[in-house]
Design a protein around this nucleic acid. Structure first.
Length: 110
DNA sequence: CCATTGACGAAGA
DNA sequence: TTCTTCGCCAATG
């Protein structure tokens, strides 16, 4: 189950997520695109499902700026709490403004 | 090998 | 704007 951390592509995903600064977020699809679609957005989700503890998993949201966790390992409330704790504000519908918080790393950095 | 299930997302209706 | 449909792909039985 947790042998995914040995997968090279998954490692790349974790590498990228670790680059996201506090108070910023990235989407599953954005990460997929950064890796030239060598991994699908869905697979990125699976990668986050079994990511190393040190990875700031809570800074990854879906393309609509919403929380996508399904309470498998951590409840959605926790992710929201962690993000709000970093200064990110949620609107009434439980979503955030990607225009404000989305992080775009330079490809060279990967 | 085949079917199903998701921390996804773009395109239509 | 909300709801489907479909493609995506790793993991699981």
């Amino acid at each position: 189950m947790l042998q995914c951390i040995n997968n090279m592509v998954f490692k790349k995903v974790y590498e990228i997520v670790c680059l996201i600064p506090k108070g910023k977020v990235m989407t599953y699809g954005q990460i997929s695109e950064l890796l030239s679609h060598s991994i699908s957005a869905r697979a990125v989700g699976w990668a986050m499902n079994c990511c190393p503890k040190k990875v700031p998993w809570h800074r990854v949201v879906n393309a609509s700026g919403g929380i996508s966790t399904k309470d498998l390992t951590d409840p959605p409330e926790l992710q929201r709490f962690l993000l709000e704790n970093e200064g990110i504000r949620f609107s009434e519908d439980g979503r955030i403004s990607l225009g404000r918080y989305q992080f775009n790393p330079e490809k060279r950095a990967i």
